[in-house]
Design a protein around this nucleic acid. Structure first.
Lengths: 212, 212
DNA sequence: GTCTATACAATGATAGAC
DNA sequence: GTCTATCATTGTATAGAC
């Protein structure tokens, strides 16, 4: 049982609207303080409703957390899926890096929510990661490996290549505060993301080594 | 007032030992659940002492958190400091990547503790980051820029290069659970770290691009 | 100086009445 | 659909024994 709202077949306009506001608020709170650190009071206040009213929609704290995790999982897995074996290797990788970086810019809280869950040992997400993510990585690593075997990409461990792409792009969402501390409080600008993208792509495709 | 122990000039052997056990326990708890998610009870249990006894050494929860953050800050900033302008550029960068990755392997909890603090917006660490880290990054970015100007490294934004190095190496500590989910539960082996190191270094120095 | 027992106020999560 | 009541947990404080 996950609350009345989830059981009801036809949801009213008010229900849909309120559930969205709750999940938006939950995303903000949980991504900042973690599951245990976030409180229902905070979420209710941010969603502009009373705690009891919020609990009418989601009976328990965990239900809210699960719902917001599920809602963002799709977004999380989508970009890698579009890596196309039929496309040009370098262009495909380039496009993937760009999409991931764009997501870090447009949805930093989603990135931090997943990170927060993973930091805790992924107690709720583990099954999904071990099944869906694992299978997806296996498939896409095979695509990368194929390109390497054909001599169209430098031969590398394809799984660790994916880890490296995730790490570098998500860094700009997850380490937001640190980047601001180093570059200045209003550092997260369009220009900065363009510099980041150019740096990452040049590093990944040309490398640091200079011949001569 | 930060507790009696902190005021005392000469600490007994018992004090030193207990404070260490407390900070070790606090590292484990806070790195997993965050500051707000971690409880004094958990820390006390893990340190093998009663809660009142723990509070004899650190009067408030925040005092424990500050102490463990301070203790790990040195380790955090040390590797970059050793980047030597007089050394060989490629060898210096290589060594830095290796040191950071080794730290992710040997002290994953320290990495996660800082990440957790940064995720929350770095409320306690911000001053230090804006001063010490910022200054250090500025100095070391200048070193990298110098090497690039001399044509000894591919010209890139040196600050974002540092971000990329941090991201890729710390990923193996911070995303521990995700890596296990993808590679198998007992994935964090010596061999795996060797593969990671080889992949990162090859990517950084040779790049993905193949000529021909 | 070191540790235990106990208490208490605040907050949070949940259940049930209206 | 909304509000009140309840109960466990948590952070903090105090008194006193070893």
């Amino acid at each position: 049982m996950t609350g009345r709202a989830a059981r009801t077949k036809k949801r009213t306009r008010i229900q849909v609207g309120n559930e969205e506001r709750i999940l938006d608020a939950a995303l903000a709170v949980f991504s900042r303080y973690g599951y245990r650190g976030g409180t229902i009071d905070q979420i209710a206040a941010r969603a502009g409703m009373s705690k009891p009213n919020l609990l009418y929609y989601y009976r328990r704290k965990k239900d809210i957390y699960v719902a917001v995790l599920e809602r963002t999982l799709t977004m999380w897995l989508a970009p890698l899926e579009s890596l196309d074996a039929a496309g040009d290797p370098q262009e495909e990788v380039r496009r993937y890096v760009r999409r991931k970086l764009a997501l870090s810019r447009s949805h930093p809280e989603a990135s931090r929510l997943f990170l927060s869950e993973i930091l805790q040992g992924a107690p709720l997400l583990r099954p999904k990661l071990e099944q869906e993510l694992r299978a997806q990585v296996r498939r896409k690593a095979a695509v990368l490996q194929g390109w390497m075997d054909q001599g169209r990409l430098t031969p590398l461990d394809p799984v660790h290549l994916l880890f490296t792409i995730w790490a570098t792009t998500q860094h700009y969402a997850d380490f937001d505060s640190q980047i601001r501390a180093v570059l200045g409080r209003d550092a997260m600008t369009e220009t900065m993301f363009e510099t980041a993208e150019a740096t990452i792509l040049k590093l990944f495709f040309e490398g640091l080594g200079v011949e001569g």
